[in-house]
Amino acid sequence: MTEITSPAAAAGSLIWHDSELLECTSVIPEGPNVATFCFRAPSGAMFDYLPGQFLTLELPVPGGPLYRTYTISSSPSRPLAISVTVKAQADSLGTRWMLDNLEPGMRIKAMGPAGVFSHKLAPCDKYLLISAGSGITPMMSMVTYMFDQGSEPDVVLINCAKRPSEIIFRDRLEHMASRVPGIDLKFVVGTNDRFKVWTGYQGRLNQVMLGLMAPDYLEREVFCCGPEEFMQAVRDALTALGFDMTRYHQESFHAPAATAAEVPVLDDVVPDETETAEIYFLHSDVRTRCTETDTVLNAARSAGLNIPSGCTFGVCGTCKIKKTAGEVHMVHSGGISEDDIEAGYILACCSHPMGKVEVEV
């Protein structure tokens, strides 16, 4: 692997090592239970790391030190300081301690930087960065690095949040995007803030949105960070769209990989065109064979049966039917509720039979 050298290292400057404590210089509120902690090296050393890497902090919580890993949200193109942006969850211990106790002037021990989640380790002409919540932190580091390079990048950044007021780094990202046309910024929110207008994308990120926001997604190197279920949904959508998943990279909230050997192998369910499936249409008393890459809707049509349908993309919900037996791989775009899925319903247009399946048609 080609060694990447930061501007600080190239200049021969004194580089910070984790044997030196970090001194907190500022605490910046970013949103509800979210803050950025900025640090410097008391010796004046510069920071050498790759955009997207992480630090492990030793936090002096009551009862003994606690070790927590946080993605670096600053960029190595600005090597005089280093920052992490943290979000406290309901059960947070270390992050809660930081928000309540860590103040400018305090010094803590940090280990690293480490990690292989960086666009610098996957050189490409075009990038697609997809994140949710505080998963924006490594993306912020990468985009800032691209911005600081001075040349125009080709990057689409999609960030999902519960509501507009909870979009982390919104102002800073919009500032960079307003100065560099090659930074294409997209936000998706679950719901509006009260008494404020939101005219952007709303709902769950899906294949339709992805195609609208980044029409050339097949040509891009994809980086994804967020909750596990969010990243699973992104992988399912990309797989269903025919994306080359060797060009997909993800970082986990809970277990970021320090080396390439620690990157987990993704064992997702992917329909196989060489595998045979069988669908029994119960009310019609018709049984038909197909492949796993066929949809239930297409199999029904091939068997001469009619399932009402509209968009054929998992949005409208017209083709919702009851599955009474077997398993399907369904990647929808918001056209069915979780309650319906729990009750056994599927959307025929985006459900692929895995083995033997029975449906009420």
Rank of each mutant, 00 (worst) to 15 (best):
Y127H: 13
E152W: 12
L129V: 10
Q89F: 14
V189M: 05
V155D: 00
N101V: 06
S118A: 06
G94K: 14
T95Y: 07
R170G: 05
M106D: 13
R204I: 07
Q89H: 15
E152G: 13
A132V: 07
L157V: 07
Q207E: 06
Y127P: 06
T144M: 01
N101T: 14
A114K: 14
H119A: 07
D154L: 14
L99H: 06
I108L: 13
L185R: 06
V156F: 03
L173H: 03
M176T: 08
K87G: 08
A88V: 04
G190T: 10
T95M: 01
C124A: 15
E166L: 12
N101I: 05
A122P: 05
Q89L: 14
G94T: 13
F169Y: 11
V155Y: 01
S134V: 10
L128W: 10
S83E: 09
M142W: 08
R194D: 11
K126C: 04
L205I: 11
S92V: 06
D125T: 12
F195S: 04
G112A: 09
L205Q: 11
P164A: 15
F117I: 05
M142F: 05
Y201E: 02
H175N: 13
L93C: 14
F117Q: 02
M111P: 03
T85E: 01
Q207D: 04
C124T: 14
P104Y: 15
M98N: 03
Q149G: 09
A81D: 09
T95F: 04
L102C: 09
A114W: 14
P113A: 10
T137Q: 01
L102T: 06
V143H: 03
F117G: 01
